[in-house]
Structures are given as C-alpha cells and as structure tokens.
C-alpha cells in the first residue's frame, strides 16, 4: 500500500468515524447503537493502522520522514487518545473531536499528496529515529486532545461548570508534556551522535524548545493556582505553538539554515 491507495483508505476510515459519531450521538437510550458506534470508530482507526503497517513494509523504512507521513501517524493515533480517555475516565465526547481532527489531517494529505519516496538520508538512519519521532507524535496528539478538551470546556463554561472536563485537559497536558520532554532530550542525545553537538539552535530545535517552555509555563501556572478559566484558555491556545514547531517552522525566514529539512518533491 502506498500513497496511490491512500485516498481510498482514508475515505473509508473517515466514513467509519462519521458513522461511529452519528451512532454514538444518537445512542442516548439504546445500548446497541452505542456498541455498534464504538465498533465503527475502532474500525476506522484499525483501517489507518493496517495502512500504516503495510506502507512501512512497502517503503522499507519507517514512514516518519516527511510531514505527510507524520500527519498519517497523527491521524491514526489521535482517535486512540479519545478511546483511551473514554475507557479510563468514562468521558465520551472527546473522541468525536479526535476523529474530526484526524479527518482534518487526512484531508490535508489528500489535498497535498506526498511523493512516494523510499529514500532515507544517512542522518536519519539511526536507532534514535523511531523513538524520537514517535515519542514526539504521541506528545503532539495528547496535547492536541488537551487543547480540544479545553475548547470544549470553554464552550461549556458559559453554561455550567464541569470539573471532570477541566481535570481531563490538565492530565492530557501533563502526559503530553512528559512526552515532549522525552522527545526533546532524545533529540539532543541523537543530535550529538549525528551532528556532533546536542544543541545548535537550529530553528526546529528552537521551536521545539519554545513549545516545551510554553507547556512548562502551563505546569507552573497550574501549580501557582492561576484562575481556572485562564488555564483553559492557555491550553486551548498553546496547541498553535505546537503546530508551528511541527510544520509552521518550514515557512519561517529562519528555516533557510535548518538542518531539519527532510521534504522532497
């Protein structure tokens, strides 16, 4: 399976997610609807997972090099966060936001198709490649989910106070921050092996640091008992900084000297 099959695969996944969402929202009284809705949701993510595995095998290298490839992982992982949150905290609404966001990123990939390219530059041929990028992607999806939960909370706040929802966005941010920290330090250790120094203020490194500092700031604002609705705003907006460090950085003037350019085509 390659990018040629991708549109069919992603439309199938999106149809499953849309069906699952519909059934889930209608399931207030009927348990059978709820279960079949959940099954459809999981099927959608299952389709993406199978595609990812087959794509990896076809490419002969981890599909983690280009932005399109990372969006693929993102779209596969973020619904999983929604499912795990429902399993762990019995909060059902997060998964609908998660599949919506996953579909959004799949759409970007359909609109801007990647070139099918098996090459992997020597700098990326390292045992650090998969852990560094996967840890970051897990961090990104947790923080995206945290931001979605925060937007939901801000919307609900105008009507009623939802303590469970607020601690949800907090714990997702906490876990996401843990993964960002792992990603940042793994990246530094890898940079030492590949480029000779653990930190060179490359634009991608700088933006990874900015994103990390922003969430470090959140952790401290939370400890300092800053006003709760302010904290929800913080989490809701902080995610945009992550987006810059994920792909926005490529469009900045500073990107001209970056060594983190792995895009072709």
């Amino acid at each position: 399976m390659t990018w040629t099959d991708f549109p069919y695969v992603s439309y199938s996944a999106m149809i499953c997610w849309a069906g699952g969402t519909l059934l889930g929202l209608l399931s207030a009284r009927a348990r059978v609807l709820k279960i079949s809705g959940m099954a459809l949701m999981i099927a959608g993510t299952g389709i993406m997972t199978v595609f990812l595995v087959l794509f990896w095998m076809e490419l002969d290298r981890p599909p983690l090099r280009t932005l399109g490839e990372t969006r693929l992982w993102y779209a596969t992982l973020i619904p999983l966060v929604g499912f795990l949150v429902e399993y762990r905290w019995k909060i059902a609404w997060l998964k609908y936001y998660c599949v919506a966001m996953a579909s959004f990123f799949l759409f970007i990939n359909i609109l801007f198709p990647d070139v099918y390219d098996k090459t992997l530059m020597p700098a990326l041929q390292s045992g650090w490649f998969v852990p560094h990028v996967v840890v970051y992607l897990v961090g990104y999806v947790l923080l995206a989910a945290s931001s979605l939960a925060a937007w939901h909370n801000l919307y609900r706040r105008s009507k009623s106070f939802d303590e469970l929802g607020e601690s949800l966005s907090h714990y997702l941010a906490l876990l996401g921050f843990v993964f960002l920290t792992f990603g940042l330090v793994f990246g530094a250790l890898w940079a030492k092996e590949a480029w000779g120094h653990y930190w060179t203020w490359d634009p991608k490194e700088t933006w990874a640091l900015i994103a990390w500092l922003v969430y470090l700031g959140y952790m401290h604002a939370n400890s300092a008992k800053v006003d709760k609705s302010l904290l929800q705003w913080y989490l809701a907006l902080a995610f945009f900084v992550l987006l810059v460090s994920w792909f926005g950085v490529n469009y900045l003037p500073s990107a001209q000297d970056s060594v983190h350019t792995y895009q072709t085509g």
Binding site: W201, P203, T206, W207, L209, I210, L213, V214, L216, G217, H220, A221, A224, V249, L252, P253, S254, Q256, D257
Partner: peptide, 19 residues
C-alpha cells in the same frame, strides 16, 4: 513563570529571524 515565558519569547525572536 515570568522568566520561562520571557525565555520563550526571546526564543520566538530567535526562532523566526535568521540567526
């Protein structure tokens, strides 16, 4: 917290303008 955000803001300048 103020210093963390200040370092983040300075890094933002360094992350946007070519260094």
């Amino acid at each position: 917290l103020c210093l963390i955000l200040s370092i983040a803001a300075l890094s933002l300048v360094g992350g946007v303008l070519p260094q």
